[in-house]
Design a protein around this nucleic acid. Structure first.
Lengths: 242, 242
DNA sequence: GGGACAACTTGCGCTTGCGCAAACTCGCGA
DNA sequence: TCGCGAGTTTGCGCAAGCGCAAGTTGTCCC
């Protein structure tokens, strides 16, 4: 039996953690254990980088707990948030797509726990556990589609609609129900929302203030709660001319 | 020997056509022939749809000759050009990504010849010819990255830089050297360029007129020739404030 | 408990580029 | 060959939203 520093915890605690993840559905408990055996578990403090854009890709990851921000930086230093990773998602899959470097950085939005596998293991894992490979490629397909949808959004929508859409997506994917509405359950600044929607923190601030005035949201420092999702949908869909 | 309507041409003409494509590198001639055997070849006239957004995905394709425009249409009818497909590229790979419908439409920009395989064959082909699968996934990875780069571009650049970038990309990917410069070798309208860059045909027209005045390009009806790529690069890179 | 810093708010002016409208022109088919 | 229509050009006015700047507030850490 494995006795490394993480061995026992991986075999016990963690298997129960991953067995409920979609990525590991369709695998027997034994297979899950075996995949886990080659994984390494790590913690990352808030704002720590799991990996950095343009650096050699050594591993791929599954987020076990927390939230991760995927960020692309332009040559002149501007940042764009490509997406947020939620619990259970696979990320940093450069290996599966034949890349040798990461195309973006991954930063812990809160304290996180991740599992990591060396890239070298990808071909074998994909071959031995086809369901695992297929799920991963499906995820990649979804991301490609989401990213293309975002291009469409940026091309055709006004800033107000884009910000409304972004908030709705965050609320749906990572929202936590509270008595006053759906709260985005990790710290998110005006600047972050601006980097998701291609605008400035000033414009985001103005919009959120306006929406707070009319009771659609409640917001504070690095915190947004959607109080009236329905009216937000109306804003998001509002076609200028149809 | 196969004697179907396409058999002889596939075994002869077409194998020589595909053997030089990156997608089929790393396969033996016999393997290439075998993959070809399950393909069906078709022609599409200019402006004909190879497949339509949201319809059931039945096949994946390789473009043997011509140019294809991949278009996404919004619910309210606005169109966005997601990308152009050049000779030798695989496209419509919904199957490999676990989708059941096409996320966009593919339209022949000129008369085209494509090879098509039924989606049902994908798993077997990917299993028996791993190099084929790997190349495809690498292509998908590249497209994801390109699409994300486009989001960054739309978020951080002005219209003039985006249009300049788009022209440079077209010139590099599909440009044909002529005595007066690099000509984009399929018909492309101002409207098309607008749909690639998230602006209006009016703004594109104004920019192209300006660039023609100062000798950077020559353009006509559905035709653009880049005469001075270097100065176009300067425009594209022009950071407002660095 | 208080200071310092990061996040946020808000006002103002201005530029980019869009919307609309009208005219023009090239190429193709009758 | 002529006309029609798609593609293109261009002018004008306007509005979205950005840049800048100054002020405010909430939090964390000492």
């Amino acid at each position: 039996m494995r006795r490394g520093p993480w061995g026992i915890r991986l075999a016990g605690l963690d298997r129960s953690l991953i067995s409920r993840l979609p990525l590991f559905q369709g695998l027997t408990p034994d297979e899950q254990s075996e995949i886990l055996r080659s994984a390494r578990s790590s913690r990352f403090a808030k704002d720590a980088a799991i990996f950095e854009q343009e650096t050699e890709a050594h591993s791929f990851f599954v987020l076990v707990a927390g939230h991760i921000r995927v960020v692309r930086t332009t040559p002149d230093g501007q940042q764009i948030i490509a997406r947020y990773i939620s619990e259970g998602e696979i990320f940093g899959v450069a290996a599966a797509l034949g890349r040798t470097t990461y195309p973006a950085s991954a930063v812990a939005a809160v304290d996180c726990v991740v599992l990591a596998w060396p890239n070298a293991l990808w071909p074998e894992l994909a071959r031995r556990f086809p369901a695992f490979g297929a799920t991963t490629y499906r995820t990649v397909g979804n991301r490609l589609q989401e990213t293309q949808a975002r291009v469409v959004e940026m091309s055709t929508e006004q800033v107000e609609q884009r910000v409304a859409h972004a908030l709705l997506r965050l609320a749906n994917q990572t929202g936590r129900k509270t008595d006053s509405g759906i709260e985005i359950d990790f710290p998110i600044s005006r600047q972050d929302i601006a980097e998701m929607t291609g605008t400035t923190l000033h414009t985001v601030s103005r919009l959120l203030s306006k929406w707070e005035d009319i009771g659609i949201i409640v917001s504070g420092r690095q915190k947004v709660t959607v109080r009236d999702a329905h009216r937000l949908v109306v804003l998001a869909e509002n076609r200028s001319k149809d």
